[in-house]
Design a protein around this nucleic acid. Structure first.
Length: 427
RNA sequence: GGAGAGAUGGCUGAGUGGUCGAAAGCGGCACCCUGCUAAGGUGUUAUACGGAAUUAACCGUAUCGAGGGUUCGAAUCCCUCUCUCUCCGCCA
């Protein structure tokens, strides 16, 4: 959520920060522009109702005193009957006005950080660096490799659940498990994250705290008959661990790593990556989450990205780091780096991790606050998160990058202890 | 799923219609006292929103699980929901 004070005092600069995301964000009928009017009417109503409430409180207290002393209070009682009725009306109006304002605020995206490059879509993303040497020979797509080895079963996934589900068998299943173990160990033991394990189902408040709701309900699986949802990423649960908390500055930064299954409806991506297991409705991911001091957020983003990169390097997978441009950055993020791994079959880099700083945007929504001084006023904490990494896509990358002309797949050395010493996957 | 009990400030816990944002204790903070430590004394101690002020730190409103209702007035009464605990059933 945007900063209300800044929204009022500094509307123009916020306008500019949002406009970079695209004209529709600040269009006449956008939540941003609507919020400006709603804020005024909301505050006017509030001033009115509060004055009346003050009156009511004052006289009610007087009535109590008079009655206590056996005096007559019928004049006050008669007058308060009217005031009270008026208060009730106004309270209802104010409630609606506040709710409308809140609702609009919740649909305004995070103003971008100045360092985010301009651009309308992913084509304008800026490559920052590359690591490793991409193989240039012809490599079959992972679905052919997996099918030939008998370890990826797309028919079984479709039979059990539908499209965009895959059943992993033998070495692939083992690799999936080994990978998430490997990643968690690295982040917990080497990078100093505290591991957590969380629910996969959350309530509406939690989903709103990190920004998935109210705007992106279509992307979520909702449980029938309950106001509950399947998480699309561990970001939701791990960040919201600190929902409505007031932390001490010394506690920051808090850093967690977590494995969870992730569930996404992929409502807007029909036809994209239909084959194979690049885009699944259910996938495993290890996530890194920071709760941090706002002044340090951008600095931390570099460290966080480095931790995700360390996994790819350990697995010897060539990748590049992209700075997402203004038009391609997610709703809640102020700045995002994507890690893209080399997929030789497609002869291109594909996203395998997304690392973002959210500034105080989520902290404000979710009530994640901290005190600079022991007695100071609480202020919203910054949050960051990044995939470290998406397991399924990592598995794909290993299959393709480790593929040998004889059909076998060489397992990255550092991963072998996690898959029972397996060095090479063969038929 | 059935039966019962409960949800109050950082914590424990009092409060069944009026002066209650809320006793008391603990903890925290500040100061005092003590040669040091321990003990002791005094004061202070929530959050959000709106307004005023910036050498100031003030005023108003709301908040006692959430939402609604009764009432001039609700932590206190009524309704709905959520969560927690105990017992029974079921279950990995």
């Amino acid at each position: 959520m945007i900063d209300r004070q800044q929204f009022r005092r500094d509307f123009d600069s916020m306008y500019l920060g949002l406009q970079r995301r695209g004209g529709e964000v600040v269009a006449e009928d956008s939540p941003f522009m609507r919020a400006r009017n709603l804020d005024v009417s909301q505050r006017e109503l509030k001033a009115k109702v509060e004055a009346l409430q003050a009156e009511r409180n004052r006289v009610s207290k007087l009535i109590g005193q008079k009655k206590g002393q056996g005096e007559d209070a019928s004049a006050e009682l008669a007058r308060m009957g009217e005031v009270s009725a008026r208060v009730k009306e106004l309270e209802a109006e104010t409630r609606d006005a506040e709710a409308a304002f809140e609702q609009a605020l919740l649909e305004i995206p995070n103003p971008l950080h100045d360092s985010v490059p301009d651009g309308a879509d992913e084509n304008a993303n800026v490559e920052l660096r590359r690591w490793g040497t991409p193989r240039q020979d012809a490599v079959p797509p992972h679905w052919d490799i997996g099918a030939a080895l008998g370890i990826l079963d797309f028919e079984a996934g479709a039979k059990l659940a539908g499209s965009r589900f895959t059943v992993l068998k033998g070495a692939a299943a083992r690799l999936e498990r080994g990978l998430l173990q490997f990643m968690l160990d690295m982040h917990a033991d080497r990078h100093g994250y505290e591991e957590v394990w969380t629910p996969s189902i959350v309530n509406r408040k939690t989903m709103t705290g990190t920004g998935q709701l109210p705007k992106f309900a279509d992307d979520l699986y909702k449980l029938e008959g309950e106001d509950a949802f399947l998480i699309p990423t561990a970001e939701v649960t791990v960040t919201n661990l600190y929902q409505d908390a007031i932390l001490d500055a010394e506690q920051l930064p808090i850093r967690h790593c977590a494995y969870t299954a992730c569930f996404r409806r992929e409502a807007g991506s029909a036809g994209r990556d239909e084959r194979g297991m690049i885009r699944q409705h259910q996938f495993d991911k290890v996530e890194l989450v920071w709760i941090a001091h706002p002044d340090k957020a951008l600095e931390h983003l570099e460290a966080l990205t480095g931790h995700a990169e360390a996994i790819l390097q350990a697995l010897e997978l060539p990748y590049r780091v992209m700075a997402l441009c203004a038009g391609d950055i997610g709703f809640s993020s102020q700045k995002t780096y994507d890690l893209e791994v080399w997929l030789p079959s497609q002869h291109t880099y594909r996203e395998i991790s997304s690392c973002s700083s959210f500034g105080q945007f989520q902290g404000r929504r979710a009530g994640i606050r901290f005190r600079e001084e022991p007695k100071g006023k609480p202020e919203p904490a910054a949050t960051l998160n990044g995939s470290g990494l998406a397991i399924g896509r990592c598995l794909i990358a290993i299959l393709e990058n480790g593929w040998q002309p004889d059909g076998s797949v060489v397992v990255p050395e550092k991963l072998r202890p996690y898959v029972g010493g397996l060095e090479r996957i063969t038929v």
